[in-house]
Design a binder for these strands. Sequence first.
DNA 1: TGTAACTATGTAATAATATAACAATTAAAT
DNA 2: ATTTAATTGTTATATTATTACATAGTTACA
Lengths: 131, 131
Amino acid sequence: MAQKQEYLSKNQKIVLDIIEKSAQPMKAYSILFNVQKKGLKAPPQVYRALDKLVEIGKIHKIESRNAFIACRNSACTIANATAFSICESCEDVKEISSSKLSKYLSNFQDKEGMKYNKYNLEFFGICKKCK
Amino acid sequence: MAQKQEYLSKNQKIVLDIIEKSAQPMKAYSILFNVQKKGLKAPPQVYRALDKLVEIGKIHKIESRNAFIACRNSACTIANATAFSICESCEDVKEISSSKLSKYLSNFQDKEGMKYNKYNLEFFGICKKCK
DNA sequence: TGTAACTATGTAATAATATAACAATTAAAT
DNA sequence: ATTTAATTGTTATATTATTACATAGTTACA
Ligand SMILES: [Zn+2]
Ligand SMILES: [Zn+2]
Ligand SMILES: [Zn+2]
Ligand SMILES: [Zn+2]
């Protein structure tokens, strides 16, 4: 899906900036702590920005970790089709960009023929480093 | 994976029972409220039972909803390979049992060849009733 | 320009979800 | 019998997220 919003608001920029600087997913209250020097003092300011950034696909939420990661998948034109690999040892998270996988899942139909407009897939395992 | 545990403890039975009676995912504190008459008064009692039941595959956690649903997929011998369809309108949740899908995902390899031992997939859409 | 509608912000309070820590009890293994 | 592990009960606390309301900025356009 094409970006819905061209310009980010001040708080959205601040929050996105801190998330993009992190190689790994960040938790909301860790973000809050990090942006307090920039004037964002209360949870709603962070959560509002997070909500919007997720909506427009700039970041994704790792549901199993309650954490947020910047989208670095330049081909990830579809904010509604996300896949991640998560190392259960070091908690390293990577976004998976496999057009084969995304095609397969986007076209998946259940038995009752329900069509989905969105999915989120989280793979778990042990990464190379941790083996 | 075969069940790891044959017998459930008292609290595990109580918690499983209430979840199995619900057609839809239940939240931890709703479970807690419902089992207070049975003597489970505090969150840890519920969360411990939930943890164990998830571990042995009797229930699954719907991560995007922070809720727990009984496994009714008799072929779901793999507690570590879960897929759900979620209606974003009525919040109806169904476990998807497609051997094709589970085979595809279980065999999925990322670019670096990392092999996964577990995945969770959540599809979102509007169900038939809500259309 | 005025003003209405919408979007974003600031702030305090609170709700909802989950875990830590520790003592006591019960079940299983040797 | 002894000891090892699993389960339970309990209090307190940590973590994650939202409600509610007041204020300010921005956009559309009459
Ligand atoms: Zn992405
Ligand atoms: Zn690792
Ligand atoms: Zn199942
Ligand atoms: Zn529905």
